[in-house]
Amino acid sequence: MDIDLMLRVYPYFLEAAWVTIQLSVLTIVLGLICGMIGAAGRLSRFAILRFLAAAYVSFFRGTPALIQIFLLYFGGPQVGIQLDAFEAGVIGLGVNIGAYMTETMRGAIISIDKGQIEASRTLGLSKFETFRKVTLPQALRLMIRPLGVNINAQIKGTALVAAISVVELTYTAQRYIGSTYKPFEMFLIAGILYLIIITASGKVISYLDRRVRLQ
């Protein structure tokens, strides 16, 4: 193993890791927003909203994320959407993970016991108040862990934007593999950095999970 080389190139990997972190945070935030809208749509009273939300989930979960990103980045200009690679990556990945988060959130909300809702309605709370005060707080507790699984997958999923040349960790590893012919060493540096990011995010999620469970 070429330790000298690894020590020489790792600063570039650190820079790339920062890009991966930015991509992760932005796509997760966008994903959560899409997930909330999607879940609201899936549970809506209006058939048209339910249909649109179901179509959103079905398309983004039924096709590869890579194709979705290519469609946005390379195909976008044809329909008047001009984005640079980073923007296309964030939007493509965020909307994609949003479809998975939609199902996670919906699953948590519909698993709340009907008795809870009935109890709240008999107390005289409106439907909206019931949702805000009874259903949602309980559902939030249930959804943190499965959302953590989505988030873990998403951090690794940011690697896809290497295919549209965003200089993040995987792209950097690929470039250095190509120029140094040391695939294992480069994999190891990038791998360790991914594991650090994922472990850290896992800690944050289990901290949040513990906190909401205590309440």
């Binding site: 590893a173 695939p183 990038a190 991914y194 594991l195």
Partner: peptide, 18 residues
């Protein structure tokens, strides 16, 4: 389990060549 598939594909593809 902690690293992206794409990175692993690069490792396997170029690693085998190496």
């Amino acid at each position: 389990m902690g690293t992206p598939l794409l990175l692993q594909l690069f490792l396997i593809y170029f690693g085998l060549v190496e």
